[in-house]
Design a protein around this nucleic acid. Structure first.
Lengths: 334, 334
DNA sequence: TATAATCGCGTTAGCGCTAACGTAATCCTC
DNA sequence: GAGGATTACGTTAGCGCTAACGCGATTATA
């Protein structure tokens, strides 16, 4: 009605009930009769009353907002993930703090500290860059931790995962089936769960194809375009016969594409390249990038849905891993 | 020291002063002697005391966090902008709520309501999609509104802008100079300040080149890849002789690229294409995209710096517009 | 029918901090 | 050297909400 902000007290007075009855009603908690509840709700709506999340956070020691922590907002994978997650939360009336850690473990820890100070009780942690021990510790400091693509599990931790290993396995198998014999792998950060699983898939794929794993063909790179470019230099200095590269993700793979071009290698004639994620730009770069497709919005939605369910006291059922899918484009000679 | 969370009271007791002296000290407010201040600070640090932003927000009616509102987090322009802005804020110890409005005015208004409920006093609004009247109203509801690329100005509003008009003017001039005669323009959302200024630059460029503005060659599109693709269909149905297209931004331009390919037009042989922003993928698509380059991180930093300065009581000096720069690549036949 | 359990609500006491005002001491100023 | 201004604190009263407990009335349980 008026422009003023109302408080519980206003509503209580208007409805002729106590503060707690209004509080209980607004929070959907038991202890209010059906008719009273309806009346309070109606009056609150009419007055335009909206509970103050700040006061609520202080009194209950628990903020209504949630958090999402991710390593690189400039990577479309994460920005699309975040967008989907935030949309899911908004659908349920919840605000989300997005925190970008810039791939730096120290900033990731600062992020958790900061979320705790804000009394945020639930977080989605996408692709943590923290060692398992530390991540488990940090996760335990929240009421509802949801870890996306992490190896850290445990009681009280919800995990939402992609079957990374299967995805890379398929990519390797495809390349070997197409006659490639020197398949290199540009791995992601050592502490990343996805990175580990993808490496495992790489090794498994090689083994299944009867090719011995050669440590010289495995390099680690910062997961961005720059890192991908640099990794090519490292790889070619070790083994000139490389005829295929699988990268940790698409932006790294795009860097690999550029690095190979700079080195004068033809794609896919000399070297095939496959990425992971299928960010929108994978289909648009030259040559178009073959990739292990992940349904990014679905992943974001699932993670946030898990978090919201936990918050609402529902039990979390892990559900099946998201299955990635090999998408063949020019870069693999598909 | 201990794992417990301390409160002002603990620190006050330890330092033998009152609550307010601690409060004033922690907020850097006057009214505390030099020596007392030092001692309180030292004790607080030793105890690991960190003021609760929630309690502070409630008591002072003003949250310590800030907000940034943007239309599409999946557009690299905005995710890079947000990343830079958030980095700038983190450097000064401030958390930021990122809110994605999905290009929908209704969600944008909901975003402001939500920020107000959280008692957030300062916002960076990037590329608002609200009509001027509404945006001005919303901006006025915050203590420190910073508008990026908006036409809305006024007392108490800080503006951080790109010289969009000059950028597009240069692009048009280049195309006309290269002999193109039917330069179309794919404009952004009607309410966007950038969109209007870019259209103005387009018309000015045509005029300067002695070409009459043809309304048939101006279409509006949702500023994403999909929108860009669709706009090509609309344009070609109106005027088959089009030999150049300038798009509102790079992702739209990338859509235009695909749309033209689908229509069997050669780029740049038949049609030249120029975008705006120079997102990282502009250089990587096929053909590589000519664009009006904007220093996105700088824009984000400036906006957040302006906001932080306002918050700290400094006066805001607009400073010069960010100058965009024409970057010629394959798509314009450069 | 006595007893307990439940329901529907109210009262009280904070959550951790700051705004606003109070006060005693010191400092000018003419 | 009286009166006003200034400095350096302290005290009080909330901010708007919820946890925890209280209490009478109704409904199961034995």
């Amino acid at each position: 009605m008026s422009k003023e902000r109302h408080t519980v007290e206003d509503v209580a007075r208007e409805a002729g009930v106590s503060l707690m009855t209004v509080s209980r009603t607004m929070n959907g908690r038991p202890g209010v009769g059906e008719e009273t509840r309806r009346r309070v709700l109606e009056i609150a709506a009419r007055m335009g009353y909206r509970p103050s999340p700040v006061a609520r956070g202080l009194a209950s020691r628990r903020a209504s907002s949630l958090g999402i922590v991710l390593p690189d907002l400039a990577n479309p994978f994460f920005s699309i993930l975040a967008k989907a997650a935030v949309d899911e939360a908004r659908g349920r009336g919840v605000n989300v703090f997005i925190i970008n850690t810039d791939e730096r473990p120290s900033l990731e820890r600062a992020a958790y500290a900061s979320l705790r100070e804000e009394r945020i009780a639930g977080v989605v942690v996408a692709a943590s860059r923290l060692p398992a021990r530390h991540l488990r510790e940090e996760a335990a400091s929240f009421d509802w931790p949801v870890l996306v693509n992490s190896l850290v599990t445990g009681a009280g931790i919800a995990n939402v995962d992609v079957d990374d290993e299967a995805g890379i396995f398929e990519a390797v198998s495809h390349l070997l089936g197409a006659g490639r014999r020197h398949v290199a792998f540009v791995a992601g950060p050592r502490e990343s769960g996805s990175a580990r699983r993808r490496v495992a898939g790489y090794k498994a794929g090689l083994a299944a194809g009867g090719i011995a794993f050669d440590p010289e063909l495995l390099v680690r790179a910062k997961p961005d375009i720059e890192g991908g470019m640099r990794s090519v230099v490292a790889l070619l200095s070790r083994e000139r016969r490389i005829d295929a590269v699988i990268a940790h993700n698409d932006i790294t793979a795009i860097g690999v594409l550029r690095g190979l071009e700079a080195a004068g290698r033809g794609i896919p004639s000399d070297v095939a390249v496959i990425g992971v994620d299928d960010i929108p730009y994978a289909a648009l770069v030259r040559p178009s990038l073959s990739t292990v497709r992940i349904d990014i919005p679905e992943l974001g939605r699932r993670a946030m849905a898990a978090l919201l369910d936990l918050r609402d006291g529902k039990v979390f059922e892990p559900g099946p891993c998201l299955r990635p899918e090999l998408v063949l484009r020019e870069s693999s000679g598909g």
